[in-house]
């Protein structure tokens, strides 16, 4: 409890963090509500285009249970870097301002300090999942008025996958920050590794092992939902998973644990 209050004291005074978090939440909510009106295939009513007119995402069944959870968590996944960066700056600040050191001098143990940062990690992961969960529930209720409340959560396991995905990225970001002790370096490494290095290694490995790369599994938790939603799968001969892959989920949680422990060991071993 002491650590939660401590984190809150540190966090709430920072305008950038508060506004950033607020914007992140608004962004996600706005996106969830607004995306229904977007027409993915360009201008509508293309009567002569020969392409099937799908209309807006909303009309395509974006908000229909059970697809809604798959769709929302997939879209929201693109925004997970926002809380990751906020958290990364928040942790790196403790090094930059040497307040980490002062915290220890004032009486905190390294373990307590680490736990306080894990609390922030959990806070952002839970917040992200809750925002998607609650907003998703509201839009699902609006668009599926004839279903009962429990039926709304059909396909809700995607929320678990989303939580795992965000949690993993948060822990990975914090790990890199503890490793590098600088926000700039940590962000560069995070982006480079996540979007370049690992896909490249994955491409070389090709085979059965690429799923065991650290960030790979977390990325494959929620695959693109659109071909499934629009029943393109059957047309294109694809097979999109209708639920979340258990293997990837386990691997993601394992790596989350590994990086969480790794960050702790780094902190324990190094001088403040």
């Amino acid at each position: 409890m002491k650590l939660i209050k401590l984190e809150w004291l540190k966090f709430k005074g920072h305008r950038f963090f508060l506004i950033g978090t607020g914007l992140y939440v608004l962004c996600m909510v706005g996106l969830i509500i607004g995306i229904g009106n977007i027409e993915p295939l360009g201008s509508s009513k293309s009567e002569d285009g020969g392409i099937v007119d799908l209309g807006t995402f909303g009309e395509m069944g974006f908000y229909d249970v059970p697809f809604v959870w798959h769709n929302l968590t997939y879209i929201a996944g693109f925004f997970k870097f926002i809380p990751a960066f906020i958290l990364l700056f928040f942790v790196a600040n403790e090094y930059k301002f040497k307040t980490y050191r002062q915290n220890l001098i004032d009486g905190l143990t390294k373990t307590q300090f680490y736990i306080s940062k894990l609390i922030s990690v959990l806070f952002f992961s839970i917040l992200s999942t809750l925002v998607i969960g609650i907003t998703g529930l509201i839009v699902a209720l609006i668009h599926n008025p004839d279903l009962g409340i429990l039926e709304m959560f059909t396909g809700g396991e995607f929320l678990i996958a989303f939580f795992a995905e965000v949690l993993f990225l948060m822990v990975f970001s914090v790990f890199l920050t503890f490793l590098m002790r600088s926000s700039t370096v940590a962000i560069i490494i995070l982006l480079l590794y996540y979007s370049l290095v690992e896909p490249f290694i994955g491409y070389i490995l090709m085979g059965d092992f690429d799923v065991f790369l650290p960030t790979r599994a977390s990325r494959e938790l929620i695959n693109q939902p659109f071909t499934r939603m629009t029943q393109m799968d059957s047309i294109m001969g694809l097979e999109t998973a209708e639920t979340i892959p258990l293997k990837e989920l386990i691997i993601t949680f394992s790596y989350t644990l590994i990086f969480a422990l790794g960050g702790y060991l780094i902190l324990k071993k190094r001088d403040a």
Binding site: G13, N93, T99, I105
Partner: peptide, 13 residues
């Protein structure tokens, strides 16, 4: 105790 420079959160009062 204070080690080296005063270390505080600059964005806080």
């Amino acid at each position: 105790a204070i080690l080296e420079t005063p270390n505080f959160y600059p964005y806080l009062s």
